[in-house]
């Protein structure tokens, strides 16, 4: 046993080093994403513009300052926060439901959040003092309701929550929700442009206020989820096992579902339905750090940030001066990944 403990120690050290890989990766990607863009700005000038903005000095080149500081930086930050939120939310769902294909987009939760946002736009709901607040709140509320409905149906239909049940319900729910969105569009003539443009979703207008809203929800939601690491491990082994080792199964479900809804809601409200991020990142991360949620959740947080910053970088630069919708990039990568996972799960490889 002493031998075993020694081995455990070495592994522990290696795992802690592994934990630093993802924050470091996110940091490197952030630097790259801020220094590359549709307009090419030399690295020296980029650093100078950022430094002067941080220290409050006057900018020698106002055009470069506005591109780097006012436009690119907030967008990269929003991409990082949305990527982090969707990924940690996806990882939590995959653990809670013991299903590697669970994610906001496959379950239809993103669709539900989008419906909430469309309702807010169509009925002109506003929160005093917060121009985009009602859209965010409605997206979060509808994300939560969607989760409750989907999980309620799933547990009733098939207590083991098999992949087929989950995916099929997600597809059905998504179609149902999108039909309601179409109905709302038909009946709201004057808001039709706002709604259709909103549905197209974009990080182009990302600003620091949105970054603050994202950061606020992420700080609370992701902390709550990361704090449930042990419990999610037990759920990932099996819900019965979680109950038997003494976990308050109901409480953890509520905590995780509320946190995931808040995260998906705010991410959808800011960036639109960016598909597959919550599916792809936890999978890639799991391949590297294993299924233990105490490592998986923080790693997904940073890995997701890096992934979406990269996807956004591709969207911003590959067709310059044109832009691609970011969802095109994530869906392209995600669809291939989804198929691979599904294939391997089915073939038992």
């Amino acid at each position: 046993m002493a031998h075993a403990r020694q081995r455990r120690g070495e592994r522990g050290l290696a795992r802690w080093a592994g934990q630093l890989v993802f924050p470091a990766l996110a940091l490197v990607v952030m630097v790259v994403a801020v220094s590359l863009g549709s307009v090419s700005v030399p690295l020296g000038q980029t650093v100078e513009a950022l430094w002067r903005a941080a220290t409050g000095q006057p900018q020698p080149d106002r055009m470069i300052a506005s591109i780097i500081v006012s436009t690119r930086l907030p967008r990269v930050i929003c991409a990082a926060l949305i990527g982090a939120g969707l990924s940690v939310g996806g990882a939590a769902m995959q653990g809670l439901l013991k299903n590697p294909l669970a994610d906001g987009s496959t379950l239809g939760v993103s669709g539900g959040a989008a419906l909430g946002a469309v309702v807010a736009i169509a009925f002109g709901l506003t929160l005093p003092g917060l121009p985009f607040g009602s859209v965010m709140v409605m997206a979060m509320v509808f994300a939560f309701l969607s989760l409750v409905i989907i999980m309620g149906l799933a547990y009733r239909l098939d207590n083991s929550l098999s992949t087929n049940t989950i995916i099929l319900l997600g597809v059905i729910f998504s179609m149902f929700v999108s039909s309601i969105v179409s109905l709302l569009i038909t009946f709201s003539d004057d808001k039709i442009h706002s709604i259709t443009f909103w549905l197209m979703g974009s990080l182009a207008g990302a600003n620091l206020n949105q970054a603050l809203a994202l950061a606020g929800v992420l700080a609370v939601g992701a902390t709550a989820i990361v704090a449930c690491g042990r419990e999610l491990n037990a759920f990932a082994v099996g819900e019965d096992n979680a109950r038997q080792v003494g976990i308050d199964v109901r409480r953890i479900k509520v905590v995780v579902l509320v946190s995931v809804s808040a995260l998906i809601g705010v991410c959808v409200a800011v960036g639109g339905s960016i598909a597959f991020v919550g599916l792809v990142t936890p999978h890639m991360v799991r391949l590297l750090v294993g299924p233990n949620h105490r490592r998986l959740l923080p790693a997904s947080l940073f890995g997701g940030a890096a992934f979406l910053m990269l996807a956004d970088l591709v969207a911003r630069t590959v067709l310059s001066p044109r832009e691609l919708p970011i969802g095109v990039v994530t869906s392209f990568i995600g669809a291939i990944f989804f198929l691979t996972i599904f294939w391997r799960a089915r073939k038992g490889v």
Binding site: V39, M63, I67, A204, P321, E323, L324, P325
Partner: peptide, 12 residues
Amino acid sequence: AEVSQEQVLERQ
């Protein structure tokens, strides 16, 4: 065409 905000800022 969907264009990059940076391009508008640069093209003045």
